[in-house]
Design a protein around this nucleic acid. Structure first.
Lengths: 211, 211
DNA sequence: GTCTATATCCGGATAGAC
DNA sequence: GTCTATCCGGATATAGAC
């Protein structure tokens, strides 16, 4: 006569975690990690303290989960670029990355960009996040480097070592995120256009003749 | 028979404030704003709580003072570029800004860059810092724009509106700061070289013929 | 002017009822 | 599994002696 444990278990558990992470995402985007209290997250999630602590051991654990999603979300859309034929030019890669800095959970970039700044700042202090940042940023650079090399292999001239140009391209995205978060401009369209024009002028655009 | 107030007053007062700000600078660079306690700052300054609160009303006030110095320090070295004759090319401006992101109080960039990320993140939440960021970033962009226009006036072709290219250049600096803070590379030399090469290739270098 | 000691508050995490 | 009430540590800011 042993009653079975409630059947909800697994799916329910995942759903609850998601619910909490979405709430935390919103709070962190609004107020950053440190000005957000557990009470804020709990209230936003519409749960109780006891419930939240059943799914996450600590605030730290929630921060790591959210920050991890933000980080990995950035590199997520890269695969698409590898499928293009012919291989995209550096100008195209740059334009793509600026257009789609992240999708992930954010509906509006207004939510995402300040959160990104918070994650970067936190990563300079939290060893676990620092490791993650190292891994993700390394992978992103490597993928960009490979895309450049593929483009070179079609007979184009990069003029700068692919390995060295990749961080420059990453900068263009990070700087855009930073300026958007700080002052709300330039617009993605204007900025993208300027960057693409710069790459075009440098002979790294789509329509450049080989050599 | 009224005793005069101690003569140290003014100079001493400034010196004490400096002492506290330097201590706060160090603490904030190490641990960020929110993980730094007043006890940390007080201990680093070698003073007592009572003394510190005599010169600053609150932790908030200290944060604002330090963040303000960090922000304004960035735009400080720009004047030098305006004195150069002939006007520097965009490549030269970019190279200069990457070399000298800030001098200010930081002995080593290792101290400065994480602090910069902390300030940027904080500015997305603190209205006073947000205003300051708006002001400083606006001024920086405008100065860069003017430098571009001066360069154009010597018969060079920028190909991109000066006003639109300025944020791109700012990005290249912000992205460098971010990547340095996160993973410690690329080196300033390598990065500067790549950026300058990109601008050169785009016809924005020092030795390009007019037209 | 400077120090020590402390009042006060706030936030994270838990215990135990239901 | 979930909620309420609460504990406890730590941090800011102050009071009062010297």
């Amino acid at each position: 006569m042993i009653r079975t444990v409630p059947k909800v278990s697994d799916a329910h558990r995942e759903q609850r975690r998601e619910q909490i992470l979405i709430a935390a995402w919103k709070c962190f985007a609004r107020n950053g990690f440190h000005s957000t209290s557990m009470a804020d997250v709990i209230s936003e999630a519409g749960l109780s303290a006891g419930a939240v602590y059943l799914y996450f051991r600590s605030k730290e654990e929630i921060i790591l989960a959210v920050a991890g999603q933000v980080f990995t979300g950035i590199a997520g859309r890269m695969a698409e670029l590898f499928e293009r034929e012919p291989p995209p030019s550096p100008a195209e890669v740059a334009g793509f990355l600026i257009e789609q800095p992240v999708l992930a959970r954010a509906q509006t970039p207004g939510d995402l960009f300040p959160l990104l700044l918070a994650v970067w700042a936190e990563a300079t202090r939290n060893p676990i996040l620092a490791d993650l940042a190292d891994e993700i940023l390394g992978a992103l650079r490597q993928q960009i480097t490979r895309l450049f090399e593929r483009w070179e292999s079609t007979g184009q001239d990069l003029r700068i070592p692919a390995r060295d140009l990749a961080p420059v391209l990453v900068s263009l995205v990070q700087g855009f995120v930073t300026q958007q978060a700080l002052v709300g401009n330039p617009s993605p369209e204007t900025y993208r256009q300027s960057v693409v024009a710069l790459f075009d002028a440098a002979g790294l655009g789509p329509a450049q003749p080989a050599g």
